[in-house]
């Protein structure tokens, strides 16, 4: 096995192997391990960070869009409710107006009816009075003509009133 035989047989073997191993490995460590590796790792880290940032931004944008959608929906709901309220208010107002006007007209009509009734009753009572006096006169005339007795106008009136009013 030359790997072990040469250790003792060739006096240059160990020194040469050690020297070149240390030179080459130190070169690799300095140039590649310390020089290139951190740059490559930095590139990877930067990419990872960028991906994470982009993902976070996308998530934030998604959340913002959701919020916007929600607020839009709320706004829609609110405006719909407002429109409904306006419509029902208008309806209420119209109904109240109509009621008021109706009541006014009703009252006016009632007044007019009452006045007319009063007129009628006044006319009736005046007519009644007239009938009474005419009836009393006619009764007086009739009595005078039939019996020749002259009755006082007041007596005839009382008698007629008694007959008329039962």
């Amino acid at each position: 096995m030359p790997q072990i035989a040469q250790l003792t047989a060739d006096n240059w073997y160990l020194a040469s192997q050690l020297f070149w191993l240390l030179v080459v490995f130190a070169g690799i460590y300095v140039v590649i391990g310390r020089g290139m590796l951190p740059k490559i790792e930095a590139t990877v880290d930067a990419r990872d960070r960028k991906v994470a940032d982009d993902l976070a931004a996308a998530k934030a944008a998604h959340a913002a869009a959701d919020k916007l959608d929600e607020s839009y929906r709320q706004q829609g709901d609110a405006s719909r409710a407002a429109a409904q309220k306006a419509v029902s208010d208008a309806k209420d107002k119209a109904a109240k107006d109509a009621e008021k006007r109706l009541a006014k007209v009703d009252a006016e009509l009632g007044e007019r009816l009452a006045a007319a009734e009063a007129d009628v009753s006044a006319a009736r009572s005046s007519a009644m009075a007239e009938i009474e006096s005419v009836a009393a006169e006619a009764a007086g005339d009739l009595v005078a003509k039939l019996s020749g007795v002259k009755i006082a106008a007041a007596d005839a009136k009382a008698a007629v009133k008694a007959v008329l009013h039962g």
Partner: peptide, 24 residues
């Protein structure tokens, strides 16, 4: 100690160079 450039050293250097090219 006598230090010689050997075939072993040559292949170490080759490995280092190839590795350097790969990394580059």
């Amino acid at each position: 100690h006598e230090v010689l450039f050997t075939n072993s050293a040559l292949w170490m250097v080759i490995a280092a160079v190839v590795l350097g090219l790969f990394m580059w």
